[in-house]
Structures are given as structure tokens and as C-alpha cells.
């Protein structure tokens, strides 16, 4: 039912979503180990909070947004039995969101954006984290509007 080009678009989105998911799963395991106190060598509040923040962003934003995009294109093409309306827009959304992920990942992984995934003030992260997170969250919002 789904043609090869749409399949590639859908799978690209879903791959990013599930790679983010598996990475975040391992971070979750690490957090349990760290908090358990069984391995004293793992004790590090700064690495713990960087990990919790990255885990939250991956699970709450990266997994959800990329899954929504991939799943949405699948449903739209299969249920309506017509191709994706605007492929360049869909690919543009994919790449822009991916750029957002990379921008947010840099301060997250270097421990400069340990503000947890809700990023509430008064905790402050570098501006690049906010720009990346916004690209990631807003782009699918507008990109998925190709559903209309």
C-alpha cells in the first residue's frame, strides 16, 4: 500500500524515534544503578542530572515527535489511500527537527543543560538548548499540519 518513497520517509522518522528510545532506556538503567548505591564508582550528581535531563528530552520530545511524524504519515497515506501531500515539506520537517535534536544534545551531553526535560526557570540552560528543543517540538507541530 505504501510506496517506497513514503516508506523511506516513515521509516527515517521511526528509526530516529526508536534509537532515541533505546538510548534513553539505557540512561534509565544507569540512573537506577547510580541511585541504588551498589556501585560507588558511579556516584556523580552532575552526570546523574545530565543523564536525567537527556533521558527526559529523548523520551518526552524526541521519541514522541518523531513517532508522531512517522505514524501520522502512515495513517494519512493508508487510511486515505493517497500519497503524502507535500514530500519536501515532510523531509524538511524531519531534517529541521533532527538539527534541533543535535543542537539540544550538545549542551545536554556536556552537562550544561541539566535543567530536566521540563526546563522550568529558575534553572537556566544555554540558549542553544532552548533553540534546539523548540525546533524539535514546533517543527512537527507545523510539519504534521500537512495532515490537513
Amino acid at each position: 500500500m505504501i510506496d517506497a518513497a513514503t516508506r523511506k520517509l516513515v521509516l527515517s522518522n521511526l528509526w530516529v524515534a526508536f534509537i532515541a528510545f533505546i538510548v534513553a532506556c539505557f540512561m534509565g538503567e544507569y540512573q537506577v544503578l547510580e541511585r541504588s548505591g551498589f556501585i560507588p564508582a558511579l556516584d556523580s550528581p552532575s552526570v546523574y542530572f545530565a543523564s536525567v535531563s537527556t533521558h527526559g528530552v529523548l523520551m518526552a520530545f524526541v521519541l514522541t515527535t518523531f513517532f508522531i511524524m512517522g505514524f501520522g504519515y502512515t495513517i494519512a497515506t493508508t487510511s486515505l489511500k493517497q500519497p503524502v501531500w507535500n514530500k519536501p515539506l515532510a523531509w524538511g520537517g524531519f531534517w529541521l527537527a533532527l538539527v534541533g535534536v543535535v543542537m539540544a544534545a550538545i549542551p545536554l551531553l556536556t552537562g550544561k543543560a541539566s535543567v530536566l526535560y521540563t526546563f522550568y526557570p529558575p534553572m537556566v540552560a544555554p540558549a542553544i538548548f532552548y533553540i534546539g528543543a523548540t525546533l524539535l517540538v514546533v517543527v512537527p507541530g507545523s510539519g504534521a499540519s500537512s495532515c490537513w
Binding site: 508522531i68 505514524f71 501520522g72 495513517i75 494519512a76 512537527p140 507541530g141 507545523s142 504534521a144 499540519s145 495532515c147 490537513w148
Partner: peptide
């Protein structure tokens, strides 16, 4: 799917 996209928007 469309309503979800609208909510997200």
C-alpha cells in the same frame, strides 16, 4: 491523527 496534529500545533 489530524486532531492530534492540531493539538500539537
Amino acid at each position: 491523527t489530524a486532531m492530534n496534529a492540531l493539538l500539537w500545533l
